[in-house]
Nucleic acid binder design. Sequence first.
DNA 1: TAGATTGTTAATCGATTAACAATC
DNA 2: TAGATTGTTAATCGATTAACAATC
Lengths: 225, 225
Amino acid sequence: MSMQENSSISKATVDRLPRYYRCLRLLADEGVEITSSEEIGRRTSVNPEQIRKDLAVFGQFGKKGVGYYVAELKENIGGILGLDQRFNIAIVGMGHLGVALANYQGITRLGFRIAALFDVNPVVIGTRLGERRVEDIAYLPEIVAERGVQIGVIAVPAAHAQEVADRLVGAGIRGIWNFAPVKLAVPENIPLISEDLSVGLSSLSYSLTHIAFEDEELSEKNNIE
Amino acid sequence: MSMQENSSISKATVDRLPRYYRCLRLLADEGVEITSSEEIGRRTSVNPEQIRKDLAVFGQFGKKGVGYYVAELKENIGGILGLDQRFNIAIVGMGHLGVALANYQGITRLGFRIAALFDVNPVVIGTRLGERRVEDIAYLPEIVAERGVQIGVIAVPAAHAQEVADRLVGAGIRGIWNFAPVKLAVPENIPLISEDLSVGLSSLSYSLTHIAFEDEELSEKNNIE
DNA sequence: TAGATTGTTAATCGATTAACAATC
DNA sequence: TAGATTGTTAATCGATTAACAATC
């Protein structure tokens, strides 16, 4: 690998890459072959300088005076994100959230494979979801090993999340994507991403509250004048 | 309101408030009455200086030499986030994701009320979810007005998300919480939070890819020496 | 060639961390 | 009082934006 594999790459940069990637996929779908930081910026609401800076961290992907070849840049960003590795995913917890994730096009479209589904509930175990069967979580270690699962998704109630995390780690999983609203303890070498929905909703509530205040202040001022 | 309602409050700060809030709720549940930035820091993985700095933006909530009264600080942060306003929420799209959200304890625990559920599918319309009936999206304007819905949640497929956003805005909604993986166009005065799951998964994939490289490099080095 | 657009260096801006006086 | 912990100022760090030379 000739790209710079330095440890000091900012999280902000990495978090923008998926947005560029999606944009490039859409451009490719539209048949666009060459694009520019200007155009990607328009579509992702990231400014062009930022995009060029982000990409520069990993190498030189464009042609001066020309722009970026869509297909090429898409492949490059995909490679940086590791999407070309087609990681195998197991989803634990087949409640509505688990099923929603299992059906979520976004996961497979990024190149991940949904390799296993687990639940504890005997009523759910054995049912089918597309081409996959829901397995008994008791067989987690065997199935994870057999199917080469690298990523575990936690979609169980908060109360059981830590136990599931422990079992996933024990089964040899390499990374965890957690949807339970708890702070999980996992070994340092296991990357963990927790999606905390309450942050988004709270921040929306904050905006609503504050816009309201600003409006009031504004209209008060206007009334006075 | 005596707290500082300044416009220049950083998003980073606001995004940490929900984490402090949850931590305080847990502390309250445990019967803890007084806490410190040190303790909140331990539980949220935010460092104590940061916490004090964040809170300082909104006012003085602690007692020097003592710490923070849990119940009081919790109420204060709740107020800052606007949780005491008990916003009414409508969820559009009763697929698995919509149902998962409708059942999600986190929403009601933060003080929001799920006031309406909508779908287009005649098979789903009229079914019940807890105490709420799924309504025909055709009646969105009337129901939003009647029930005083302020927040619209978009849980429909990407292809219909913009249309739903337009209808929500048209119905007088004040803010949107979007789960469809598309960039929505909404009027400037409508706060919009988009949850993009592909970012989390991609960044996990990135970490996995990079940890692997680091390990390899490390073991290579070790082998050489 | 002239125009366009990258990659990169320099300048600015904002956020985090450290330090400490105030005070309970 | 002595010890603890806040609130806040100062120092550091990192990320974003601006500017521009390189070059297609």
